[in-house]
Amino acid sequence: MGIEVNGRKIDWIENESVSKLLKRMKYTFPLVVVKINKDIVLRSEFNNKIIPDNSKIDVVHMISGG
């Protein structure tokens, strides 16, 4: 069991929402785009959308900085 976040393999946690995954990854930057198996997850769904096992997650941080 496991998932891939931005190309890096990590453990899968049952019933973990997108918000909780972002917290676990310490992804605190506000301008992120999240895709689960290439499907975009709307920000409004971050608290409810559960991460499935074996999924590939992209957490795209918009550039910002500077």
Binding site: N6, G7, R8, Y27, F29, D58, V59, V60, H61, M62, I63, S64, G65, G66
Partner: peptide, 17 residues
Amino acid sequence: HDEAWLIFMDMVNNAIP
């Protein structure tokens, strides 16, 4: 950093390998 700020794109997003 006013020319490019690529840390997230590179290090976190892994988008320009």
